[in-house]
Design a protein around this nucleic acid. Structure first.
Length: 390
RNA sequence: GCCGGGUUACUCAAGUGGCCAACGAGGGCUGACUGUAAAUCAGCUGACUUUCGUCUUCGGGGGUUCAAAUCCCUCACCCGGCACCA
């Protein structure tokens, strides 16, 4: 219970209010807003979603707010550029994909799903002006991204300036008690808190989740940086991506991505510091994470497959079969035809560099193999094809 | 509408008439090493060609020149500023 307010939490504004409310047994309305721009949910999002799940299990109501209206504007959060405006179809598609994935973590049947077009589309211009009167320009441009853009002479549209206002109004419309978000959402969520106050509502508690560092070990996990582990990743990929993490991320990932008790994690960190092999703890981390999203049996299987392929240098179990017509075709052509190389030039390069194997035998530029059914073509460390001569 | 700046390969970014298939960085790929798909090191990273070499590429189109990413004209888009309109 105590961990609920600390583990994976960067900041809570209104912690006292939250504790009191929970003690009183009141059912809380917890808002999570999403701009349905990119559909892949990854472990970084999961930190927050899993926290929500805990609240949900305590009987509180999670409100999943799809920013269908606001996404037509484009949230400026963390963006140096104005986002493109999405079409209705794209929004609907992304939102559905999002919901499907969220269902792996939250009990989606108990989630209240709302769209902010429900109320935002009904606001008149006069309503908007009234709302806008609650904020000063100085307050809005205080925000970092806005400020930076102004200073560096970049474009900042008026409609973007209004974004925090709309998100704040969402909280009013939903009568949210708590709003969740990453730290890039701090400003917007705070705006909601103060607008609620001004409009005579109980101000929402601001719950900011900790950021998860991506697989590169440096930047925050995000799809656009391609350093993410999606919760829909194939088990073996998921396992492998965790194994490829820099050792320094073992503890943070245990803390943010699993429910292993903190005491156990601290113990683990200690043994690592004393020289234990990080691989072993990383392997159990990988297994645990795969287990959460795919189940125990699959996790064990993924581990076995990964060990076989990468630790023991074996082949993966299921190799795709590629049919070829001519057993005497050149290796270069074969590589291009199978898609292992994008061009003949690239195929030659791969061969020159010793990256192409046929049945475990490194192929030299001058070799002219004759292919037979069942031959295993390998490019690099992890691309395999089984040939089938017609 | 006017003035100025910009548009270069996956991304950022150098290059201002021939030495440019185009510096550099990131990314990607391959190899070595490793507990690892990490870190580090090395090589590669437009297409065709065994090699010599040939061809296409620097926002689009047109032109000048023996020769253009580089000069001129024109069009499109982006960024500033100014003006016009309120």
């Amino acid at each position: 219970m105590n961990e609920l307010f600390t583990r994976g939490v960067e900041q809570i504004v209104g912690l006292d209010e939250l504790e009191k409310a929970i003690k009183s047994g009141r059912k809380l309305r917890i808002k999570l807003g999403v701009d349905p721009t990119r559909p892949d949910i990854h472990l970084g999002h999961a930190v927050l979603l899993r926290q929500l799940r805990q609240f949900q299990d305590m009987g509180h109501t999670v409100i999943f707010l799809i920013g269908d209206y606001t996404s037509k504007i484009g949230d400026p959060s963390g963006k140096s550029k104005t986002r493109p405006i999405l079409t209705d179809d794209e929004i609907m598609f992304n939102a559905q994909t999002y919901l499907d994935q969220v269902g792996r973590i939250l009990d989606i049947k108990k989630v209240e799903i709302r769209r902010n077009s429900e109320w935002l589309s009904k606001l008149s211009f006069a309503d908007l002006l009234k709302l806008a009167a609650n904020f000063s320009v100085a307050q809005l441009i205080e925000r970092d991204d806005f400020n930076n853009r102004l200073k560096s002479g970049q474009e900042l549209s008026l409609h973007e300036l209004l974004y925090p206002l709309m998100q704040a109004y969402d909280s009013v419309a939903l009568e949210a008690d708590v709003e969740f978000g990453g730290n890039d959402q701090l400003f917007n969520i705070m705006a909601g808190r103060s607008l609620q106050k001004k409009m005579g509502q109980r101000p929402q508690v601001v719950f900011i989740a900790e950021l998860l560092v991506g697989t590169d070990g440096v930047k925050k996990m995000s799809k656009s940086l391609d350093n993410y582990i999606a919760i829909t990743d194939e088990p073996v990929d998921m396992y492998g991506k965790v194994m490829s993490l820099p050792d320094s991320l073992i503890a943070p990932y245990y803390k943010l991505c699993t429910e292993i008790p903190m005491g156990v994690i601290d113990e683990l960190v200690k043994t690592l510091a004393e020289g234990a092999n990080p691989r072993d703890s990383k392997a159990s981390l990988a297994r645990e994470i795969v287990r959460i999203y795919h189940g125990e049996a699959v996790a064990l299987k993924a581990e076995a497959a990964w060990n076989n392929q990468f630790r023991e240098g074996g082949r993966p179990e299921d190799i795709e079969i590629f049919p070829i017509n001519d057993a005497h075709m050149s290796l270069v052509d074969l590589l291009v035809e199978t898609g292992m190389a994008a061009s003949k030039g690239e195929a030659r390069r791969l061969i020159d560099q010793g990256g192409v194997k046929l049945d475990d035998e490194v192929q030299k530029p001058e070799s002219e193999p004759v292919f037979t059914t069942g031959d295993i073509l390998q490019v690099g460390k992890r691309r395999y094809l089984k040939l089938k001569v017609k």
